[in-house]
Amino acid sequence: MRQVHLAFAISWVLAVGTSTSSLTGQASLVATGTLSADTVGQGNVFEFSVEIGVPPGSAVYFPDTLPNAFGLESFRTVGWVVEAVGDGGVLTLTYPLIAFEIGLVPVPGLDVFIGPATEIEGQPLPTRSVIGKWSDVAANSRSETLERVSVARQSVWVASPILLEDISAGLEPRLPSDVLGANWDWLSLIVIFSLSAVLLVAVTPMAKKLLTNRSTEEELSEASVRVDPALARWQYALDELDRILSLGLHLDEEVDEFYNRSSGVVRTYVEGLDTAWGPSFTSSELMSQLERWTNGSSLDLYGSMDVAEVVKFGRLRPNADSAESDWRVLRSWVHKSGSIEP
């Protein structure tokens, strides 16, 4: 291979050194193709190398891969190296290939095109040459100005991984009956089943424990989600009363609004104690019902609610201390209402 390359380089130097004509006037360019091996194994990767001389100031066009052939296709895109020789250079293209069929398999040839590098963009080569775009050639946009250099097809012998001696010795693929039938290694089967049984015995208690823990966690989570409606209504009333006090309405001469909101919270809470007590009841009627329901144990609440009614519908305006005192009565009653029995 090295001798062929050296001879090719010498001939190229002589051709360039003795020629003073233009690219199109030179003797026809020559490309040589060689295989990395004459015989390859089935499924193995081998290489098809092409060497071609590149005159100075040239653009070179070549395909990225070789066309697929029967039982053979490209394994990767082409690789290339260039070596400066005299005024020109020698370009070596390497096409990795892989064969799948057994026997003599053809390796496709290819065409390399060379033309002037004027106004051609591409990867630079020594001596002012470039690698042109193969798509320009494929689209026939520049073919009339290019010189075609053909590389002859070759062939490679693809050997089977099963040798003739193996076949003579009786080597053959297993039949499905050998895989699925009774021809098993019983010792291996016994070991496999024994280990599976031991693993199952060891894992079962752990799986049961994990499932039990998960079930307990889910029950606790569901219990935390299920909130008693009465408890939620009770807590909401307390939170809302605290929020009303924090607004400081009774301190900003809005004592009527302070009473209105506070008594409204208590009224809404009381209405939830019995489905028969709805918005149709006045506050006085609602307190009368509540008095019977609690056996008259909430006298302070009735008094504060009465004051709230007078403030809302009359001209009574208690001072801030009195308003806050009535608010405490309302909140205290709501807070204790959970323990009041009818």
Rank of each mutant, 00 (worst) to 15 (best):
M1K: 10
L6P: 05
L6G: 09
W12R: 00
T18G: 02
T20I: 09
G25K: 04
A27C: 08
D38I: 00
T39F: 03
V40N: 00
V40R: 00
G41N: 15
G43L: 11
F46P: 00
F48I: 02
F48K: 00
S49N: 07
V50F: 01
V50C: 00
G53I: 02
G53C: 06
P56T: 11
L66S: 07
P67L: 03
F70T: 06
G71H: 03
L72N: 01
L72W: 03
L72T: 02
L72A: 05
E73S: 13
E73N: 13
R76S: 06
T77K: 14
W80H: 14
W80N: 06
V85S: 07
V90R: 03
L91T: 07
L93A: 05
L93I: 07
T94W: 05
T94K: 06
P96I: 06
P96D: 06
I98S: 08
E101T: 08
L104V: 12
V107H: 04
I114S: 00
A117N: 08
Q123E: 08
P124T: 00
G132M: 08
G132Q: 08
G132V: 06
K133F: 09
V137N: 04
A138T: 10
A138V: 09
N140C: 04
N140T: 04
E144W: 05
E144L: 09
V151A: 01
A152L: 05
A152N: 02
R153C: 02
Q154Y: 06
Q154C: 05
S155F: 02
W157Y: 05
A159T: 07
L163M: 10
L163D: 08
L163S: 14
S168G: 10
L175N: 15
L180W: 13
N183R: 15
L187Q: 14
L187E: 15
I190L: 15
I190G: 09
I192P: 05
S194T: 14
S194F: 13
A197W: 09
A202E: 12
T204K: 11
M206T: 08
K209W: 12
L210M: 09
N213E: 15
R214Q: 14
R214N: 13
E219N: 05
E219T: 07
S221Q: 10
D228L: 11
D228Y: 10
A230T: 12
L231V: 13
L231D: 12
R233G: 09
W234P: 04
Q235E: 13
Y236D: 03
A237L: 09
D242L: 11
R243Q: 12
S246G: 12
D252Y: 12
E254N: 15
G264A: 15
V265F: 06
V266P: 01
T268I: 10
V270Q: 08
E271A: 14
G272T: 04
L273V: 08
L273R: 07
D274P: 03
D274Q: 11
G278T: 14
S280Q: 13
F281C: 06
S283G: 12
E285H: 07
Q289V: 03
L290Y: 00
W293T: 07
T294Y: 06
T294S: 13
N295H: 03
M305P: 09
V311K: 02
F313A: 12
L316W: 10
R317L: 03
N319T: 10
A320D: 08
D321S: 15
L330H: 00
W333L: 06
W333Q: 04
W333M: 05
V334N: 01
I340A: 03
E341K: 04
